[in-house]
Amino acid sequence: MKIGYRTIKTAVGTPIAVSIAQLLGLTNFVSAGILTILCIQSSRKRSFVTAWDRFLACAIASIYSFIFFELFGHNPIALGMMLIAFIPTTVFLHITSGIATSSVIILNLYSASSNPTSFLMQQFLLIIIGIGTALLLNLYMPSLDKILEDKQKELEDKFQEILFQISRYIRNNEEVWDGKEIIESEEMLNKANNLVERDIENHFIRNKHPYRDYFRMRYRQLEHLKAMLPLASQLERADALSERIADYFERLSKNVYPENTAIIFLNELKELRASFNLEKLPTTREAFEVRSNLFQLLHEVEDYLKIKQKYKKTDIKLVKRYERKRQESQE
């Protein structure tokens, strides 16, 4: 089982906060550790926002507790009255994330027989130590670039398999594929997008992210891949034209990577469509349906490739290398 950075930060920060509070001789020093646990976040931006919300909520809770307990005594009724006033205040100020953190200070003040000013000041020190320790630890966030790079490679492998299985079905009409790569690709894209958003929150001056556009592009392409599957599954017979399209899909499956070589396959697509014009018109309903599905399949492929073309400039070197290899293989 893998231990995450958030767990490590909690394990490191809690004893540090407790130790500082204990060294300062503060009452309820363990509360500093509880506050640290509650304030550890998954991103820098979120930690700064929630730190301010929690500090403000704790400060308000301390003042409300001091007033209500001094006026009405330390009893459940006074506690309930205080919460009736405190919680709407946090809602009004949009700092409800600080309610759980504030409960630590509220219960500290409630459990004391009296709340002299010195004890109230100790609670403020506990707030500063607990939230401050968590904030300092949250300044360090591990880079997600390697994880996102791995997600990118895994996703491209899934796309390659999907395209290959489409080519296989067009050629052999074999229904041996369970289509799990489609579901896995969707799950992978959702996880990758969540990671991208978290990585953006870890960089205060970064509004754009190279992987955000990439995964959005792949998500749009996946929709077209899903649209291709029913079209391919309706091809009940293969002819010379469908064989060429199967070869086209197989080549396409071997060229799924971050670089943009979409122009190559868009040009090949024009050649395939030209082949349609040279073929005789279908004479049977079955042949017409096959031809219609093949034509629609090429339309989906074109949209799939154009999405990649809009995402990134064409990589000329890779295009030339591909065309050179293709010419050599034809010779």
Rank of each mutant, 00 (worst) to 15 (best):
M1S: 14
M1A: 13
G4R: 12
K9E: 10
A11Y: 08
A17Y: 00
L24K: 01
F29R: 08
V30C: 09
L35Q: 04
L35M: 06
L35F: 05
R44D: 04
S47D: 03
F48I: 02
A51I: 01
W52L: 06
R54L: 01
F55M: 04
L56F: 04
A61C: 07
Y64N: 02
S65G: 01
F66Y: 10
F69T: 01
E70M: 00
L71C: 07
L71R: 01
L83C: 06
I84C: 09
A85W: 05
T89I: 00
V91H: 12
L93T: 07
T101V: 08
S102Y: 01
S102C: 02
I105E: 07
I106E: 05
A112R: 05
A112Q: 11
S114Q: 14
N115S: 10
I127Y: 05
G130A: 02
I131N: 03
G132S: 06
G132F: 00
T133D: 07
T133V: 05
A134C: 03
L137K: 04
L139H: 07
M141Q: 15
P142Q: 04
D145E: 15
I147L: 14
I147F: 03
K151M: 12
Q152D: 12
E154Y: 07
D157C: 10
Q160R: 12
F164Y: 15
I166S: 06
S167E: 12
I170L: 15
I170G: 11
N172Y: 15
E174W: 01
N190D: 15
K191E: 15
A192K: 02
D199I: 03
N202H: 03
N202L: 01
N202C: 03
H209A: 04
D213W: 04
F215Y: 10
R216P: 00
M217V: 03
R220A: 15
R220T: 13
Q221F: 06
L225G: 11
L225P: 13
E236P: 00
R237F: 05
A238P: 00
D239M: 05
L241A: 10
A246H: 06
D247Y: 12
F249V: 02
F249Y: 11
R251T: 08
S253K: 09
P258T: 08
T261C: 14
A262G: 08
I264S: 11
F265Q: 10
F265W: 06
N267R: 10
E268I: 01
E268A: 05
E268W: 09
E271Q: 14
E271P: 00
L278T: 09
E279N: 12
E279S: 13
P282W: 06
F288A: 08
V290C: 08
S292F: 12
L298I: 03
E300I: 04
D303M: 10
L305M: 06
Y311C: 02
Y311I: 05
K313C: 01
I316F: 09
L318A: 13
R321W: 12
R326L: 10
